[in-house]
Simulated assay, not measured.
Amino acid sequence: MQHSDAELLAFDKSAHEDWDEERAQEALNSEDGKLYRNHLHIAMHLSQWAERETERTKGDDTDELRTTGFVHALEEVAAHLRQADYLPGSDFLGPV
Protein backbone atom coordinates (compact mmCIF):
# COMPACT_ATOMS: atom_id res chain seq x y z
CA MET A 1 0.00 0.00 0.00
CA GLN A 2 1.33 3.38 -1.00
CA HIS A 3 1.09 6.26 1.45
CA SER A 4 1.65 9.92 0.70
CA ASP A 5 4.46 11.74 2.47
CA ALA A 6 1.79 13.59 4.48
CA GLU A 7 0.31 10.27 5.65
CA LEU A 8 3.74 8.90 6.52
CA LEU A 9 4.50 12.01 8.55
CA ALA A 10 1.11 12.08 10.30
CA PHE A 11 2.11 11.08 13.82
CA ASP A 12 2.44 12.80 17.20
CA LYS A 13 5.73 14.61 16.80
CA SER A 14 5.58 15.95 20.36
CA ALA A 15 6.41 12.43 21.54
CA HIS A 16 9.73 12.62 19.65
CA GLU A 17 12.23 14.56 21.71
CA ASP A 18 14.66 14.93 18.79
CA TRP A 19 12.14 15.54 15.98
CA ASP A 20 13.53 17.82 13.27
CA GLU A 21 11.08 18.65 10.47
CA GLU A 22 13.87 20.06 8.29
CA ARG A 23 15.91 16.86 8.63
CA ALA A 24 12.86 14.79 7.66
CA GLN A 25 12.23 16.91 4.56
CA GLU A 26 15.90 16.70 3.59
CA ALA A 27 15.77 12.91 3.96
CA LEU A 28 12.64 12.73 1.79
CA ASN A 29 14.35 14.80 -0.91
CA SER A 30 17.70 13.03 -0.72
CA GLU A 31 19.00 10.07 -2.73
CA ASP A 32 17.83 7.97 0.25
CA GLY A 33 14.27 9.31 0.00
CA LYS A 34 12.87 5.96 -1.10
CA LEU A 35 14.59 4.20 1.81
CA TYR A 36 13.38 6.86 4.25
CA ARG A 37 9.80 6.46 3.03
CA ASN A 38 10.20 2.73 3.65
CA HIS A 39 11.42 3.52 7.18
CA LEU A 40 8.41 5.77 7.76
CA HIS A 41 6.10 3.01 6.59
CA ILE A 42 7.77 0.51 8.94
CA ALA A 43 7.48 3.05 11.78
CA MET A 44 3.76 3.41 11.03
CA HIS A 45 3.38 -0.37 11.29
CA LEU A 46 5.35 -0.51 14.57
CA SER A 47 3.21 2.24 16.10
CA GLN A 48 0.02 0.44 15.12
CA TRP A 49 1.43 -2.78 16.58
CA ALA A 50 2.25 -0.99 19.85
CA GLU A 51 -1.31 0.38 20.04
CA ARG A 52 -2.80 -3.08 19.46
CA GLU A 53 -0.57 -4.62 22.14
CA THR A 54 -1.54 -1.93 24.64
CA GLU A 55 -5.24 -2.55 24.00
CA ARG A 56 -4.84 -6.35 24.01
CA THR A 57 -3.27 -6.46 27.46
CA LYS A 58 -5.42 -3.92 29.29
CA GLY A 59 -6.63 -5.32 32.60
CA ASP A 60 -4.13 -8.18 32.76
CA ASP A 61 -1.51 -7.06 35.32
CA THR A 62 1.12 -9.64 34.37
CA ASP A 63 0.71 -9.15 30.65
CA GLU A 64 0.41 -5.38 31.03
CA LEU A 65 3.78 -5.14 32.80
CA ARG A 66 5.55 -7.25 30.19
CA THR A 67 3.88 -5.38 27.39
CA THR A 68 4.94 -1.99 28.72
CA GLY A 69 8.59 -2.75 27.94
CA PHE A 70 7.71 -4.30 24.59
CA VAL A 71 5.58 -1.32 23.56
CA HIS A 72 8.32 1.09 24.66
CA ALA A 73 10.84 -0.77 22.48
CA LEU A 74 8.52 -0.67 19.46
CA GLU A 75 7.96 3.06 19.96
CA GLU A 76 11.70 3.75 20.32
CA VAL A 77 12.55 1.93 17.09
CA ALA A 78 9.70 3.72 15.30
CA ALA A 79 11.02 7.07 16.57
CA HIS A 80 14.54 6.37 15.31
CA LEU A 81 13.17 5.33 11.92
CA ARG A 82 11.11 8.53 11.70
CA GLN A 83 14.03 10.71 12.75
CA ALA A 84 16.16 9.32 9.87
CA ASP A 85 18.60 7.80 12.36
CA TYR A 86 18.96 4.58 10.36
CA LEU A 87 19.75 6.10 6.96
CA PRO A 88 23.19 5.48 5.43
CA GLY A 89 25.80 7.88 6.77
CA SER A 90 23.86 8.67 9.94
CA ASP A 91 25.98 9.52 12.98
CA PHE A 92 23.53 7.44 15.00
CA LEU A 93 24.55 4.17 13.36
CA GLY A 94 28.30 4.66 13.48
CA PRO A 95 30.56 1.92 12.11
CA VAL A 96 28.92 -1.45 11.65
Results as ranks from 00 to 15, higher is better:
M1K: 03
M1V: 03
Q2N: 13
Q2F: 05
H3N: 03
S4I: 08
S4Q: 06
D5V: 04
D5W: 01
A6W: 00
L9V: 04
A10K: 08
A10T: 09
D12I: 08
D12L: 05
S14D: 12
A15D: 10
A15I: 05
W19C: 07
W19L: 05
D20A: 02
E21V: 09
R23N: 09
A24W: 02
Q25F: 10
Q25K: 13
E26K: 15
E26G: 08
A27P: 01
L28M: 05
L28H: 09
N29S: 12
S30H: 09
E31L: 11
D32S: 11
D32Q: 11
G33A: 02
G33D: 04
K34P: 00
K34I: 07
L35F: 04
L35T: 06
L35R: 08
Y36F: 12
N38C: 06
N38S: 13
H39Y: 08
L40Y: 03
L40Q: 06
L40S: 03
L40G: 03
H41L: 12
I42N: 02
I42C: 01
A43N: 08
A43L: 04
M44N: 13
H45F: 12
H45M: 13
L46E: 07
S47D: 15
S47P: 00
S47T: 15
Q48G: 15
Q48L: 13
W49T: 14
W49D: 06
A50N: 06
E51C: 06
E51L: 12
E51M: 11
R52S: 15
E53P: 00
T54R: 15
E55Y: 01
R56T: 07
R56F: 06
R56L: 13
T57F: 14
K58R: 15
K58M: 11
G59N: 06
G59F: 05
D60C: 11
D60H: 14
D61H: 11
D61C: 01
D61W: 14
T62A: 12
E64Y: 13
R66N: 15
R66H: 14
T68V: 07
G69K: 14
G69D: 10
F70A: 11
V71L: 07
H72W: 09
A73H: 07
A73C: 04
E75D: 12
E75H: 03
V77Q: 12
A78G: 03
H80Y: 10
L81I: 03
L81H: 02
L81N: 02
Q83A: 05
D85H: 11
Y86D: 07
P88T: 09
G89R: 01
G89W: 00
S90C: 05
S90L: 05
S90E: 08
D91C: 00
D91N: 13
G94I: 11
G94E: 14
P95K: 10
V96Q: 15
V96F: 10
